[in-house]
Amino acid sequence: MGERAREGLRAYRLIAAMWMRSTMMYRTSFALTMAGNLLVTGLDFATILLMFSRVDSLGGWSLPEVAFLYGLSATAFGFADLVLGSMDVLGTRIRDGSFDMLLVRPAPVLAQIGADHFALRRLGRVVQGAVVLGWALVSAGIDWTPAKVLLVPLMLGAGAAIFCALFVAGAAFQFLAQDAAEVQNSFTYGGTTLLQYPPTVFGKDFVRGVTFLLPLAFVNWVPAAYVLGRPYPLRLPAWAAWSPPLVAVVCCALAGLAWRAGLRAYRSTGS
């Protein structure tokens, strides 16, 4: 298992490096898309700023508090997007037959497809999310304790892992429906968007859904409530703030199983 993971990481590094070299063949285009990426994600936050230009709080949360949620969600998602954000090419690769070429190489297929179309410009979202997060950390009036300091990097890591699991699960789904790549956007982009707003904004059943069915709430809502000293959504127990790493491990394991099932189905049907 560990051997396979190491092989996978090595193959990922090699292929990602090739994609970076490819992008660098068109330097101007790279610079433009990088700038564009920063701008897109910037406008994302601009919407929230525009809202707060007309109101003082949203669902009872102030701007710095919402910015805290935004920063956590955008940074965690940004990492996942940087690492696995191009997995939606899988459907195209299956349709045009080039997926088969990945299967005759001596490297795990998940690593190869994960590194496919690796794009450094996606760093834009991480940078932009981190800037907002940095501002929120100093202006949200957090009553810092060592535990809270520890929890921030912990939830960024766990959040990125949860989003990575979503990308892998979405790719696995494409083995079944090659044209339906957009469905995964609902969960990945949709997920990061909804987590930018306080849980108090959403209906109770909706919050239950994104806590227990699709555990997005553990990316930021639950641990952020602890850091900000706010009540937990759904009155979860106090230790729930420390559960994100566990949730992330479970998500990744499930996504891994889904991927294996999808790949097995592909290799028995060839479509």
Binding site: G59, S186, G203
Partner: peptide, 15 residues
Amino acid sequence: TNTAFGIILVYTYLA
């Protein structure tokens, strides 16, 4: 996807 994003947006607008 449009339904999912619609639901998310509706909640934020309602707030």
